[in-house]
C-alpha cells in the first residue's frame, strides 16, 4: 500500500533529511514510525505527500508514484501534520467544509459525527482555538473523506488523555473500515498501543523494522530483587545492574530458569520480572546500533 525504495532526501549538501529509507506497508496495516526529533520522520512524511521532492529513490502509494501521481494519491489520503496551521480567519465549520469539498464526496454526516465525538465547537474561529482543539480540527479534516491511507505525524501531542483515548478509538474505527495507517511518533507507548509493525529511524536511517510482538518478545526482562543482605549475582546475561540499598535491578536476557537457578539458595525477599517497555527496548536498539 505504501512502498518506499531507497528514498533519500538531502535539503542541501549538509542538511540530511533521510537516507536510503525502504519499507513496504501492507493494506490495512498500522505501521509505526519511531524515532527521536530530527531523525527524519517529518521528512519522510512530507515526501509522501510531495511537499518536498526526493533527492533519489522512489516511492509509491496504492501503486501510484508519490511524485508524479500525487494529486490522485491525495484523493485517498488523510493527513495530520506535525504542526497544525490553518486559516485563522475561518470558522471551524467553514474550514472543514472547505476541506471536505476538495474530495467531491458527501462529508457532512462524517463531519458532524466526528465533531460530536471530539466535542468540538464548530462555530468558533480557528484563531481562537487552543492547541488541543486545533488538533481535533486536524483529525476531522483527515478522516472526513474516509481515506484509504491515513498519515499521522505526532497526532496526539496537545490532546489530553481523555481525548487521546477518543482519538485512538476513532483511529481504530478507521482501521476497521479498512484504512492503512502510517503513524509517526516519538512516543513509543502509543505506537505500542496500536501498531502492527514499527520502523525505527535514527539520524536519517531506518535502522530496523520489527513486529511489535517480536520486539516485546525479545528475551530481555526487567528484574527487580529485594535481598536480605548483600548477594553476589554474576552471569553473562545480566546487564545494567543497579543496587540501591538491598534492592537490585537489572536487565536479564537469558532464560528465566537459568536465572532461577542462579538465585537458588540466596536470601531473596521479593522477585519481580516484568516485560520491558518499548522505550527501554528502543534505547537498547539505539545503543546497540551505536556499537
Amino acid at each position: 500500500m505504501i512502498n518506499l525504495e531507497k528514498l533519500t532526501k538531502y535539503y542541501n549538501k549538509n542538511a540530511r533529511g533521510i537516507i536510503d529509507v525502504s519499507f513496504d506497508i501492507k493494506e490495512g496495516e498500522i505501521f509505526g514510525f519511531i524515532g527521536p526529533n530530527g531523525a527524519g520522520k517529518s521528512t519522510t512524511v512530507r515526501t509522501l505527500i510531495n511537499l518536498i521532492f526526493p533527492t533519489s529513490g522512489s516511492g509509491t502509494m496504492m501503486d501510484l508514484d508519490i511524485v508524479k501521481d500525487t494529486v490522485e494519491i491525495r484523493k485517498h489520503v488523510g493527513y495530520i501534520a506535525g504542526e497544525i496551521n490553518y486559516y485563522e480567519d475561518m470558522t471551524v465549520r467553514k474550514f472543514l467544509e472547505y476541506s471536505g469539498k476538495f474530495y467531491k464526496v458527501d462529508y457532512e454526516e462524517k463531519l458532524d459525527y466526528l465533531a460530536e465525538k471530539l466535542e468540538l465547537d464548530l462555530t468558533r474561529k480557528i484563531e481562537n482555538l487552543s492547541f488541543g482543539n486545533k488538533k481535533k480540527v486536524a483529525i476531522i479534516q483527515a478522516f472526513i473523506h474516509n481515506p484509504k491511507i491515513i498519515i499521522l505525524d505526532e497526532p496526539t501531542s496537545g490532546l489530553d488523555p481523555l481525548m487521546q483515548t477518543i482519538f485512538f478509538d476513532l483511529l481504530e474505527e478507521e482501521h476497521k473500515r479498512g484504512a492503512t495507517i502510517f503513524f509517526s511518533s516519538h512516543i513509543l507507548s502509543e505506537v505500542q498501543r496500536i501498531c502492527d509493525r514499527v520502523g525505527i529511524v535514527k539520524e536519517g536511517y531506518l535502522v530496523k523494522i520489527e513486529k511489535i510482538e517480536d520486539i516485546m518478545k525479545t528475551q530481555a526482562k526487567n528484574v527487580r530483587i529485594i535481598a536480605d543482605g548483600d548477594i553476589v549475582l554474576k552471569n553473562s546475561h545480566i546487564a545494567k545492574m543497579k543496587k540501591t540499598g538491598n534492592i537490585y535491578t537489572f536487565i536479564y536476557t537469558g532464560k528465566v530458569n537459568e536465572l532461577l537457578n542462579l538465585l537458588h539458595g540466596k536470601e531473596i525477599i521479593d522477585l519481580t520480572i516484568t516485560e520491558p517497555t518499548l522505550e527501554e527496548i528502543f534505547m537498547h536498539y539505539y545503543e546497540r546500533e551505536e556499537k
Binding site: T70, V71, R74, Y79, A81, N85, S99
Partner: peptide, 14 residues
C-alpha cells in the same frame, strides 16, 4: 509563511 500550505497540498489539488 503561515504554513497553511501543508494543509492545502495534502488535499487533491496540484
Amino acid at each position: 509563511d503561515d504554513s497553511t500550505i501543508e494543509f492545502l497540498l495534502s488535499k487533491p489539488i496540484s
